[in-house]
């Protein structure tokens, strides 16, 4: 009986501790604005206010977006791809289309993002190390056709942008 009462009083104290924590967070930056606390002691908001601010690129490296081709070392407009079609065979969703051209270089490299489940099996299967996850966060399209991404064209576009 006495132990139960003591436990309940301890429980009430822990409730007060919880209120103290959320109360401090809830006041946020106000105490610092009102000069009640030094500015580094406040609790500013942690989210990024999207349309007004965007996340810096160095924070996007952990984002696993749709796959992209890695540029070759000597020529950034060319891919490392050797058109072995291992990725096409490995893909469980059948979302890759690779057409082999002359000298093992692909002439068409399509990725249907509407089917892709971002499993990464193609990245693992590639013997040439020509695939990786992109950090592309702007994925919205207006039609289903736009979801079929021409990765060779994207590679050339990116190389052109880097040169300029």
């Amino acid at each position: 009986m006495i132990k139960a009462i003591a436990d309940n009083i301890k429980g009430l104290y822990s409730l007060l501790v919880g209120l103290w924590v959320t109360g401090r967070y809830g006041l946020g930056p106000f105490p610092a604005w009102l000069h009640l606390l030094p500015p580094e002691r406040g609790y500013p908001q942690l989210t990024t206010h999207y349309p007004r601010k965007t996340i810096p690129d160095e924070n996007l490296i952990t984002f696993r977006g749709p796959v992209e081709l890695i540029p070759a070392e000597d020529d950034p407009t060319k891919s490392k791809c050797i058109s072995c079609l291992m990725c096409v065979k490995a893909c469980p969703s059948n979302c890759l289309t690779v057409l082999k051209g002359r000298n093992k270089a692909p002439i068409e490299w399509l990725h249907d993002f509407s089917l892709c489940s971002l499993c990464g099996t193609c990245v693992e299967a590639c013997p040439a190390g020509a695939l990786r996850f992109s950090h592309d966060i702007y994925l919205v399209t207006e039609t289903r056709q736009e979801l079929v991404r021409d990765l060779l064209a994207r590679l050339r576009q990116k190389a052109g942008k880097a040169r300029a």
């Binding site: 809830g26 942690l46 989210t47």
Partner: peptide, 13 residues
């Protein structure tokens, strides 16, 4: 708004 502030986000904006 208070829910947002306690969770350290802006709430309705």
């Amino acid at each position: 708004k208070m829910a947002g502030f306690i969770q350290r986000r802006p709430g309705p904006y």
